[in-house]
């Protein structure tokens, strides 16, 4: 680059630009950093406040308490189960539809597509949806309420449809001549070559399931508590935390610090997997925007 031939306003801009972006990075990361160091601090000491850069009195006490809590363990189990089962089923279910409507010869293809697109603009709203799921399908209080209502997503279907349309037709045609049926072609030929888009959609679904709290609030019960819902309860009232602490005979542990340890534990899986998967997420946005 011709950096040195730049006049001073341009050089000033370069420096200012880097500073602004650095400030943005710090603003993005610092909140995460702060809860990590405070959660690693002795809770009684942390109550004095002012922990800004590193733990003042290092302690793992908060994490011990959280990990001993049975509700947390159960919520971990439920959350992992719904993330795995929900992701696998939703990816297949949505991919199957997208593959079907990617075939121009499919009868009713335009109607099916139109049905999908209409749902992007219109919905019945939360209450009729609740009534259908809870009163008509009787899914309330069942683990399946986390899986079945999330099997399909129209935006993900469109991303997949765009991908399937771009696949070369020759392989499928030659397989057809060899007598393979559509089901087999989908399963043994199309899915294996569609790994990039499947990974993208799987990640969207996994993040959704991991972060979901709303459906747990509407349709869940104490047996179906998810991590985010516990976190929500802890944040919205400190009484839960005090209860958790006093149940374990740990009255000295301040509610605030327990809250932080829970926040760190529930978010860690996302932060750790994120660097490895972020390029897939971005791919999804790209495919989606090309279509738009």
């Amino acid at each position: 680059m011709l950096t040195y031939s730049k006049r001073w306003p341009e050089r000033a801009f370069d420096i200012l630009n880097v500073l602004v972006l650095l400030a943005l990075c710090i603003m993005t990361l610092y909140p995460f950093y702060n809860i990590v160091i405070t959660s690693l601090n002795d809770p009684t000491d942390a109550a004095r406040g002012g922990i800004a850069f590193w733990p003042r009195v290092f302690s793992m006490e908060n994490y011990k308490v959280v990990f001993q809590d049975e509700r947390m363990g159960h919520a971990f189990f439920i959350t992992i189960a719904r993330t795995l089962a929900g992701t696998a089923t939703a990816v297949l279910f949505t991919a199957a539809f997208a593959y079907g409507v990617s075939k121009t010869e499919l009868m009713g293809r335009r109607i099916f597509l139109m049905m999908a697109i209409v749902t992007m603009y219109f919905s019945g709203g939360i209450i009729p949806y609740y009534l259908v799921v809870a009163k008509y399908l009787h899914l309330k209080g069942s683990f399946l309420v986390y899986i079945i209502p999330n099997l399909f997503n129209v935006f993900n279907a469109i991303i997949m449809l765009t991908f399937f349309r771009g696949l070369p037709k020759e392989i499928e045609e030659s397989a057809k001549i060899d007598g393979a049926n559509d089901l087999r072609i989908f399963w043994q030929l199309v899915l294996p070559v569609s790994k990039p888009v499947l990974a993208t959609i799987a990640l969207y679904n996994a993040v959704f399931h991991w972060n979901a709290w709303y459906d747990a609030m509407l349709f869940g019960n104490d047996n179906l508590l998810t991590l985010q819902q516990i976190l929500m309860q802890i944040i919205s009232s400190n009484s839960n935390v005090s209860l958790m602490a006093s149940n374990l005979g740990l009255g000295s542990v301040s509610a605030q610090s327990l809250k932080l340890a829970t926040m760190v534990i529930t978010t860690l899986p996302i932060v750790f997997t994120y660097p490895f998967v972020q390029k897939y997420f971005v791919q999804g946005v790209m495919i989606g925007s090309v279509k738009g």
């Binding site: 279910f93 949505t94 199957a96 539809f97 593959y99 079907g100 409507v101 075939k103 010869e105 499919l106 009868m107 099916f112 049905m115 999908a116 749902t119 219109f122 919905s123 019945g124 709203g125 209450i127 009729p128 949806y129 009534l131 259908v132 799921v133 008509y136 399908l137 209502p149 099997l151 399909f152 279907a157 049926n181 559509d182 089901l183 989908f186």
Partner: peptide
């Protein structure tokens, strides 16, 4: 097209149940 339909129709049914019946429920 029965196999193609087998792939497509479950999602169509899903949309009827989770999108269109709630729309009617309005």
């Amino acid at each position: 097209q029965r196999y193609l339909m087998l792939l497509t129709l479950p999602a169509v049914l899903w949309m009827i149940i989770f999108n269109y019946i709630p729309m009617y429920g309005v």
